[in-house]
Simulated scan of single mutants.
Amino acid sequence: MKIVADENIPLVEAFFQDLGDILRLPGRQMRLEDVADADALLVRSVTQVNAGLLAGSAVNFVGTCTIGVDHLDADYLVAQGIHYASAPGCNANSVVEYVYAALCHLDINWLSRKVGIIGCGNVGGLLHRRLRAQGVECYCYDPFLTAEQNADLASLEAVLACDIISMHTPLTTGGPHPSFHLIGARELEQLKPGAVLLNCGRGPVIDNQALLKHLHTDRDLQVVLDVWEPEPEISQPLLARVALGTPHIAGYSYDGKLKGTEMIYQALCRHLAMEPRKTVSDLVQPLADNALTATAPDAWSAVKALIPRVYDIAADDHRLRELSAQSLAGSANFATGFDLLRKHYPMRREFHNYRVEGSNAETWLSTLGFQCR
């Protein structure tokens, strides 16, 4: 068996080497000739998997180590009898921690704010449960859920009236509720003064040009964008105006990526009618030296000081802005640099890997996922 895999998928050899020969390639540069004689294709969201990539190839299994599948032409795969699998929920915790890190950086204590969530699947649903566990007032917009599934369902207008709006919807262009440009000029005008808008789902769910135009007049709106329209050729003028901008790495925790690899390994084993023989815990040692001490006059100060020690979101923002400055100066290609920031992303471990001692915010930190006494 020949397996072609995106070079950014971690532990590919460790998980898949017993199943076949592995060829690693840049995901955005995969071409028909690269996969013509492959039996299995392992990708991330940057690879468009369709007839243009697979026509006439030997591929009979496609696995994407991501929760989203909008980069897969599902109709084509089904018509060709090609089995495909994704990794739903693999990076949900990583994205939720990104939201917390962003709010800490902006000094926004979410306990005292109304939070709106657009899209309450694996990611938005986890964020909703964590916030509700802390007693946060939440409003959720997801037309595919019922009140029995989510007691905080509300209209889109009610969500847009919140203090914090966090977007976690997949990208869809058809069906009864398409998400493409769900947030445009009209919706942006509905945001309250001083609101915080975060998008960690898919870039085109927000009309980026409408957002840029809106930010020229609404200086109080604080925007956090991890996803853009389009990528990797994002709007650098928009980057200059957002409060935080990162290169589509909200779900890029090491733990989340490992979980994605493991889930696709399990899916390929099922496809081959084999029993999986490996797990992440077999291949990765627990984090050493994971003790943190948090001392602060109050719980919010403790949380705000501790989270950047585990995940420095400001560094992600700085790297993207530095790339933009180099691009505007003519010393770097922005699109290439955007992908390189993702390829060489520093290892980020999730909160549950760390033990916290000496804090007066144990209950709060425990709800966020930290190990506390």
Rank of each mutant, 00 (worst) to 15 (best):
Q371C: 14
R24L: 14
Y100M: 11
F338G: 03
A273P: 02
A325L: 13
Y98M: 08
P170F: 06
L42V: 00
R129S: 09
L272T: 09
D21R: 07
A92I: 11
T47I: 04
D39M: 07
I3W: 00
R319M: 05
A154R: 15
T47R: 01
Y98H: 14
R130T: 09
L19S: 06
L54S: 01
M347T: 14
V224E: 02
M1G: 10
F338R: 06
L111H: 07
G369M: 10
D6M: 03
I249L: 12
L111Q: 03
Q285P: 06
C140M: 04
A161S: 12
I313R: 09
I108S: 11
G203L: 05
W110K: 05
L42E: 00
D21G: 07
L153W: 04
M263Q: 15
P247R: 11
D220Y: 01
V62H: 05
N93K: 14
V224G: 01
N353L: 06
V123D: 02
C120V: 11
L145G: 01
E362A: 09
I82Q: 12
K213E: 14
C162Q: 12
P247L: 11
G245T: 08
R202W: 03
H128Y: 13
T293Y: 13
L341Y: 06
M347R: 13
I108D: 05
I82S: 10
S45T: 15
Y345R: 13
D220A: 04
W110A: 07
A325V: 14
Q222P: 04
V49F: 06
F144C: 06
R342F: 14
P204Y: 02
P204E: 08
L287I: 13
K278P: 00
L328I: 12
T173H: 13
A147Y: 08
H181F: 02
D255Y: 00
D39G: 15
V310H: 13
D163I: 05
D163Y: 11
P193N: 13
V310L: 15
T173I: 10
E357P: 01
V242K: 03
M347K: 15
V136W: 09
G251M: 13
K259Q: 15
P230D: 10
E275Y: 07
Y139C: 11
T279P: 07
I264L: 09
Q48M: 08
Y254A: 06
G201D: 13
P308M: 02
K278S: 02
S366K: 14
D73L: 00
T261A: 08
V49P: 01
G245A: 15
E97L: 05
P346C: 05
H352L: 10
P237H: 11
L292Y: 06
E229L: 03
H318L: 12
A40N: 04
I108H: 05
D152P: 04
E322H: 14
K213S: 14
L160V: 08
I206A: 13
L156S: 09
V12C: 02
P10A: 06
D226L: 10
G194H: 04
A154L: 03
F351D: 00
F144T: 05
T293V: 10
F144R: 08
L41N: 00
L53I: 03
V280H: 00
I118F: 07
G124A: 14
D21V: 07
A243L: 05
L23E: 15
A305R: 14
G369Y: 03
M30F: 08
R309A: 10
K2E: 15
E157F: 05
